[in-house]
């Protein structure tokens, strides 16, 4: 039953995934430059675990390896998870994260295209619930760390634990964490913000990485790989909610700018919330889905117990996607509002 069209566009799923990964590269390079070579190790480990798990599960499900492995979707998930996790964490943390992402969230749901939840965010959520301490030890900006790690050091730290170098020498808390703990203790916001880990907008160094993700996201937009709806609605929802909270109580709630340029906001807006499989698909649905995800991110950051809210916000909204899509179907050509709505089954 293979009929017309006899010609196909030049689109392919593997190329799309690859392009999204390319758009991540500016952020990755900035990260390596500003926070040391640890990112290469976590990217490498996550990718390796992703491919091993994916291949294993494909084999168990009796599916051909080549077309499914070469769709690059597992690699993209691996990168997104690696970029959401602290670098320099123990190797098994990445393994467990990828296990949840690939095996539980993706393959057990039926593989590519069938998963309800964003796989990378499932991996992240599983880790932050199970290993909260490991998840707060982020590599310190190169200038602020007492000890600049080489690539070999980084491998050493990841595989052998801290060894001779103390973790305090190369890690630091994130700005979101710092703000939350200290604001709750009553520290005035000026003195929180004057700490060296804070930069001009978000976290020192992290704001540059966020800018690079923004640039990569704009690239995705210009390549028409994503539409504007999700990133814009996500960032607007986040900024608006954070702004309202900030206006109500500036001593407890950080400014919208800090929210936009710290944690997973930019990565989430352009690369995670836009995952087509788990996001809403209609134009209006995307606005609702992403706007709500942004709002929830701000709420979880402000009142929740976790250092960042992007993952849980996205996962919560993933659940709502079928519902949102059903109720935001666009008007079909020739169906006029008020006219009979056409045939219903």
């Amino acid at each position: 039953m293979i009929g017309s069209p006899y010609i196909l566009g030049r689109n392919s799923t593997s190329a799309i995934m690859l392009k999204v990964m390319l758009a991540l590269i500016p952020g990755i390079v900035a990260h390596a430059w500003l926070f040391g070579p640890g990112i290469w190790v976590s990217l490498f480990l996550c990718s390796a675990f992703a491919i091993v798990f994916e291949a294993l599960l494909l084999l168990m499900r009796g599916l051909p390896l080549k077309p499914f492995l070469s769709d690059n979707s597992a690699l993209l998930t691996a990168w997104l998870l690696a970029l959401s996790l602290p670098t320099l964490a123990p190797w098994w943390l990445y393994a467990i994260g990828m296990l949840f992402a690939i095996v539980v969230a993706k393959q057990l749901y039926g593989g590519l295209g069938q998963n309800l939840f964003n796989p990378a965010m499932i991996g992240y959520a599983a880790l932050i619930v199970s290993f909260p301490v490991n998840m707060t030890q982020w590599a310190a900006p190169v200038g602020l760390a007492d000890h600049a790690l080489t690539l070999l050091d980084a491998f050493d730290v990841v595989f052998a634990g801290q060894g001779s170098i103390s973790a305090d020498a190369y890690t630091s808390a994130t700005v979101l964490d710092t703000w939350k703990t200290q604001a709750r203790l009553g520290t005035p916001s000026e003195s929180i913000l004057s700490q060296p880990i804070f930069g001009w907008a978000g976290g020192q160094g992290h704001e540059i990485v966020a800018l690079m993700y923004l640039a990569g996201g704009l690239l995705l937009l210009s390549l028409k790989l994503i539409t504007w709806h999700i990133p814009l609605a996500f960032l607007a929802g986040l900024a608006a909610t954070a702004g309202v909270l900030h206006l109500i109580d500036p001593t407890q709630h950080a400014s919208p700018l800090l929210h936009l340029f710290s944690g997973g906001a930019m990565l989430g807006a352009f690369f995670i919330a836009t995952d087509p499989v788990t996001a809403a698909s209609t134009p209006r649905g995307k606005l609702i889905y992403a706007g709500m995800a942004g709002l929830l991110t701000a709420i979880i950051r402000a009142f929740g117990g976790y250092p960042d809210g992007v993952a849980f916000a996205v996962l919560l909204m993933n659940v709502c996607v079928p519902f949102i899509d059903t109720y935001t179907q666009p008007r079909v050509f020739g169906h006029h509002p008020g006219h009979s709505k056409g045939r219903k089954s």
Binding site: P67, L112, G113, T227, P276, Q329, P330, V332, F333
Partner: peptide, 23 residues
Amino acid sequence: IKPIELPCIRCGACARACPADLQ
């Protein structure tokens, strides 16, 4: 020859290309 069919990733490209505004 048409390449092998992969799973739908709900990318919505088809909906954006549809002149009848279908999904």
